[in-house]
Design a protein around this nucleic acid. Structure first.
Lengths: 233, 233
DNA sequence: CCGACTCTGTCAACTTGCCGACATTCTTCC
DNA sequence: GGAAGAATGTCGGCAAGTTGACAGAGTCGG
């Protein structure tokens, strides 16, 4: 990918939209390109930080795993997202595993260069602080959901979040979650069994709020799901 | 409190230990002092951010609350801790409620002044980024505990954390958690009922790993608790 | 030292969600 | 079009934790 194309890709990302063109240019100049095959491991929990990653195409799955094979799906990044900043800023090991879902293209801004740029351009700091704050708020919300909401409301909340990130509005106004999303995967997001997800999704479908399809979900009445979340809170 | 005393108080805090004296002085110059009576509300979730807080004496309890009165005890700060930085950096409302436990003295660094100082001294940024990263890692660990560990291991993990923060080593080598800590409060930390906490604590005591006292806990064998956490992970 | 209050232990009935098993249905790839 | 594999629906037994109730024990202030 040529430098102007890189510049374009970075400037288009939600995270760097407000950044002046000059700084985008400087970031682009630091970036290396990287390719990952489907399922390839980008980094694992405990690894030393190599740099900051930006996703150009494909998907990256962030998860926590136990020795006995259970795993928790923490995040699913799509093109335009940036991640891996935590280890960059505190110098400690990676907090999670990162794995490609489908063949993926990434940008890597290596650690040392990134810190040099930050030192030269402290204007960048508030920017990345907002990035950290956003993840913190997301974590807090998640913790509260687990603490306060019953499983059904948590599922509804998760569906709405997915619709926010991956939703495609259909002709009839309903929102299709444009993801290959088996119920087992949904279960891994909520740390709940496949069977429980299945039962609950069917209950939601019976009420006409969603429609189930093989490996995907269509949300017909987002307001009803929101009410379910709020009502339980 | 006089300015040199403030300077001293800030420099002594775990968070600002590495900060050069000059910057500590500049922070101290911005600080206002504030007193809170036992149980007084410092700020509530949803409030606009007034500033960054440092605790001089007493305790501050950070929690999330539902309309129907359940609450989740997220954090318990002690003298030397600083908090309230998230809303400062992203400009969004407070994420939690903060309430004094016992009469408390606080420092407030007002928002506008703080940002002026940051702009003048960007060296401060990496410092606060580490602060955010630390809270993020804590959140992640918590989420994983909830997802992966059974209640007993989560309780053990929480006790060890409390021992870390509030522990006083006794003559016989065991560690007393120097907090008024009713089992109900422990339950609110883990979002688990008082009865369950009671049963589990008694099981731990039966194994000789802890000793229960009225409103407090003594940890006799930290290693055993650690093994319990690790074994379940 | 006594009464009020807080904290703890315990029980039974109930709810939620897990797990294993098995049958069905849908998709994909030859 | 026909496997093979992936995803889903469903059931019953089981484990963990909740809720409400009540009794007993510890602490504190007058």
């Amino acid at each position: 990918m040529s430098t102007p194309e890189l510049h374009q890709a970075i400037a288009a990302s939600e995270w760097f939209r407000e950044l002046p063109a000059e700084l985008v240019g400087q970031l682009a100049a630091l970036a290396q390109q990287r390719h990952l095959a489907d399922g390839a491991l980008l980094f694992a929990k405990g690894d030393a930080a190599d740099g900051l990653y930006g996703l150009l195409s494909g998907r990256v799955r962030i998860s926590a795993t136990t020795r006995d094979g259970r795993d928790l799906l923490v995040n699913l990044f799509e093109p335009g997202d940036w991640f891996g900043e935590i280890s960059m800023f505190d110098g400690l090991p990676r907090t999670h595993d990162a794995r490609a879902v489908g063949a993926s293209e990434l940008l890597l801004i290596p650690r040392a260069r990134f810190h040099a740029l930050l030192a030269a351009q402290p204007v960048l700091y508030p920017h990345f602080m907002r990035m950290l704050c956003r993840k913190l708020r997301r974590s807090f919300a998640w913790i509260e959901y687990i603490a306060f909401l019953p499983m059904s409301a948590r599922l509804a909340a998760r569906l709405l979040e997915l619709a926010q990130d991956y939703g495609e509005t259909q002709a009839d106004g309903s929102v299709l979650i444009a993801l290959h999303l088996p119920q087992e995967e949904l279960g891994r997001m909520l740390s709940v069994s496949r069977q429980t997800v299945s039962k609950e999704l069917n209950a939601l479908e019976a009420r006409g709020w969603i429609r189930l399809d093989y490996g995907r979900v269509l949300i017909r009445q987002p307001e009803a799901l929101e009410a379910l979340v709020r009502g339980a809170a």
